[in-house]
Design a protein around this nucleic acid. Structure first.
Length: 569
DNA sequence: GGCGTCACG
DNA sequence: ACGTACGTGACGCCG
């Protein structure tokens, strides 16, 4: 604590930290800011604290000068820019001022810079960043007044490290422009038909009650079906059922095991039915209702740019990236999401983007040719793996090939493959060997990725995004092999994340430029969902198609576009 | 707060 | 002998 204070004092002499600033002083600070062309800002309660060099000014929000600063072309050093913009925007809307949304480049986001330098971290706490990058000691009460000045020093440090690691292009060309896109996505949200939602919820609730009663009739007593422990006791002790699985899985209550047990007794099937409906009820129907914003009548999920270590975007509260798409109830649930009056949803998804990127990155001619010729890639792989012609091909062949293809992008393992296609381990090994024989440069790609990770301690995506792989040198074989799979997968998954982020930003700006009454509302890793006015739908469709495909790779990028009045697209 | 489970790509 | 496909968020249980 003492050491920290002296360090702070060195950076920022205490006598210059004034909390009660006169009008004249504030004017002085502002003129210094304009002269320097850069400042940093943090928020505290209903105040904005702006700093440059050793000068600090507090602004009550909203204040005209603050909005002038934020909407000027000065460089703004921010921590979590999207949330700051949101806060300022919400504040000035509530105050009904005539000031415009203060989301004006250029700005620098310390949180995103730190994320790019090490995307593996669980959080990017500002004080921890100050500790890590400026070498200050631990402190738990760093005053917010000190932060603007320290943020400027952190900015320089992070910017230099981005350049050193050649992450500056990813930062300035992909992540910074995306901040505004995500800000608008959060603001826009998505409309929910509350009547439909309530109807479905009521119906499911009744069904759950019925199933619960059937289950209790079968057991003769009530218990908590949601408790895996209690359920296991009922299945394995009371009913004496047996699973073929051994070890930890022997008393498992997971779906796959329940399906096996269902052949021995009628209870497991009822539990499966219960699970399906209860999942729908507790994970989707109830939260969805609770997340409807009373003033906008829409759901506004959070879009996080600094969570996934591969570079993917993440949605939460609620997560709109895992809305059910298969199963009996998915269709009903997706009907609940509706476009605004006079609008349509437009969904555009990349076809096989990860495998196309694998083809591009590996430069495997066989794989590249398959995509150039527009082949069904799983069929093509099936023909290669089983040495059969198109007319001999069955759905089973295709299904296995599809699993192998997915496995490859996961950094395949014989165990993983054998588990998912239910083949003996040896057969899975053979399939993998055969795959590498047919796509030899994919094998090289995997080896090169692992070797690069061993040498450098990280891997890179197509656009230079980095993922550190520290466990690549672990003496623990399991950890090391897991790291090797991560090294392979991060390049493919991360490159796909780069591409769709770039496409989103391009689409956003063209929609804005042409004033199209359309907005991006959801991104689901390889898919972009837009809400567009019906009269603009053809133009939006054209723009989306153009921008998503506009990448110069060894293979074409294919995009499927659907439009409709619900999320069943 | 960790674990088992299950929804998505 | 053990435990293993990659990346997530969210629920409820249980210690």
């Amino acid at each position: 604590e003492l050491e920290f204070r002296s360090l702070i004092k060195e950076i920022l002499p205490e006598e210059q930290i004034s909390t009660n600033i006169t009008k004249a002083e504030k004017k002085d600070i502002l003129s210094t800011i304009y002269k320097k062309g850069l400042f940093s800002l943090t928020l505290s309660d209903s105040k904005a604290i702006v700093g440059v060099d050793n000068l600090i000014a507090e602004f009550d929000i909203p204040e005209k000068q603050l909005y002038e600063l934020m909407s000027s072309n000065l460089m703004k050093i921010l921590y979590n820019a999207k949330d700051i913009f949101k806060f300022l925007s919400a504040t000035h809307y509530s105050q009904a001022t005539s000031l415009e949304t203060p989301i004006t480049p250029p700005f620098f986001d310390l949180m995103i810079a730190a994320y790019l330098l090490n995307p593996n971290k669980a959080k990017y706490d500002l004080n921890e960043l100050l500790l890590d990058y400026l070498g200050t000691i631990y402190n738990k009460e760093l005053s917010i007044q000190l932060q603007p000045s320290l943020m400027l020093k952190l900015y320089e440090k992070l910017m230099n490290e981005l350049k050193e690691k050649e992450l500056d292009n990813v930062y300035y060309d992909i992540e910074m422009p995306l901040v505004e896109v995500l800000y608008e996505m959060e603001k826009a949200g998505i409309k929910v038909d509350e009547r439909k939602l309530n109807e479905l919820t009521a119906m499911i609730e009744v069904e759950i009650e019925k199933i619960k009663n059937r289950i209790y009739n079968l057991t003769g007593f009530e218990f908590n079906i949601n408790s895996p422990k209690q359920l296991a006791e009922v299945l394995y002790d009371k009913l004496g059922l047996k699973s073929r699985k051994k070890g930890k899985k022997a008393r498992s209550t997971e779906m796959e095991v329940l399906e096996e047990l269902a052949l021995q007794h009628e209870l497991p099937q009822e539990v499966i039915n219960y699970r399906i409906l209860n999942k729908l009820f507790t994970s989707y129907l109830i939260p969805l209702k609770n997340f409807i914003n009373p003033s906008t009548k829409r759901i506004h999920p959070k879009w996080s740019q600094t969570v996934a270590s591969t570079g993917r975007l993440i949605s939460s509260e609620p997560n709109l990236q895992n809305i059910p798409v298969k199963g009996q109830w998915a269709e009903y649930l997706r009907e609940v999401f509706v476009p605004e009056e006079g609008c349509l949803f437009l969904s555009a998804d990349y076809s096989q983007i990860e495998l196309r990127l694998l083809a591009h990155l590996s430069e495997d001619q066989n794989l590249i040719d398959a995509f150039i010729k527009g082949k069904d890639i799983h069929k093509a792989t099936a023909m290669e793996l089983f040495s059969i012609s198109e007319n001999q091909l069955t759905e089973e062949h295709r299904r296995i090939a599809k699993t192998v293809n997915f496995g490859i992008t996961y950094g395949i393992s014989a165990f993983g493959l054998s588990e998912s296609i239910k083949f003996p381990y040896e057969k899975a090994e053979e399939l993998i060997d055969l795959y590498f024989l047919r796509y030899p440069k994919v094998k090289d790609f995997i080896e090169q990725s692992i070797n690069f990770a061993r040498e450098k301690g990280f891997v890179k995506t197509l656009f230079g995004r980095i993922r550190p792989i520290p466990e690549i040198k672990s003496p623990n074989q399991n950890l090391r092999q897991q790291a090797e799979r991560m090294a392979v997968n991060a390049r493919v998954q991360g490159s796909a994340a780069d591409i769709i982020k770039i496409a989103m930003t391009r689409i956003y700006h063209r929609i804005k430029q042409e004033n199209l009454n359309a907005r991006i509302i959801i991104q689901i890793h390889d898919e972009i969902v837009i809400e567009s006015h019906e009269k603009n739908i053809d133009r939006v469709k054209q723009i989306v198609d153009e921008e998503m495909k506009n990448f110069s790779l060894h293979v074409p990028l294919e995009v499927n576009i659907y439009t409709g009045k619900s999320l069943n697209l």
